[in-house]
Amino acid sequence: MREFKEITVENDLAAAKKPEELILREVVANGYCENAAFAIKLALEEAITNAFRHGNKCDPGKHILVRYRVTHEAVEIEVSDEGEGFCPDEVPDPTQPGFIDRPHGRGIMLMRAYLDEVEFGGSGNCVRMVKFNR
């Protein structure tokens, strides 16, 4: 069983490009289709933006931890921040009237739509995502 790789970056969106690049390089090398690569890139971007903005509150002194394992069968990614976490069930459905014209609140929905598994762990400050290679 291949081990998880780990990378910790400063709470900075430019720095957070590094794990994204590393993961996508392995995704391509493992023969995932274009649609799967699109899904993984989109979900990673959403997870890292959430960690930076909502978890770490844009604090440059904090960090984002990304753990990942890419095999021919699946891509598993965990993104953790140093925030207090949140309850995903309390995030309103952005497609409902009253919320659809709000500019925020669609990141988790897109992650769930594009990946096969999305779970929030810890106190809600860690998201685990899985995309299977089909």
């Binding site: 890139k41 989109l42 971007e45 014209d101 709000r102 500019p103 925020h104 669609r106 990141g107």
Partner: peptide, 16 residues
């Protein structure tokens, strides 16, 4: 080729 939820938010603000 790629668009995030933050970009969708920008479009909603622009529409208004």
């Amino acid at each position: 080729e790629h668009l995030s939820s933050a970009a969708l938010g920008m479009l909603i603000t622009l529409k208004k």
